[in-house]
Amino acid sequence: MKFLCVECDQQMAFGERQLPGDGTLAATFKCPKCDRVVAMLTNPMETQLVSSLGVEIGGRTVPAEPFEMVRANVVTGGGGPRSGLLGCRASCAAW
């Protein structure tokens, strides 16, 4: 997905990303010529799709952790013998 400032005919540059915590995502893009800023707002379904690709809008600042998507998004079931994903996280670090 790219953003074009139609008036300036310029590709807009990524500015910042916000995750408000309600499943939505906000990313700002700025026209390098006229400085106009627009925000792309995704609904929870769209955010989930981006998440499933294992990519970071705005670029990765740290490498992906092992099983990052699975650990972040799978509901373990809670309370059972395999609920200890913290333990998994610790041992995953060595994989």
Partner: peptide, 26 residues
Amino acid sequence: AHFLDQGAPLAFKGPVAESFVWRGAM
């Protein structure tokens, strides 16, 4: 099974309504 409690179905965190949109991608 390594990531699920015994007998727990596979479920993902996310919007429940129309989850078919993103579940396959997950």
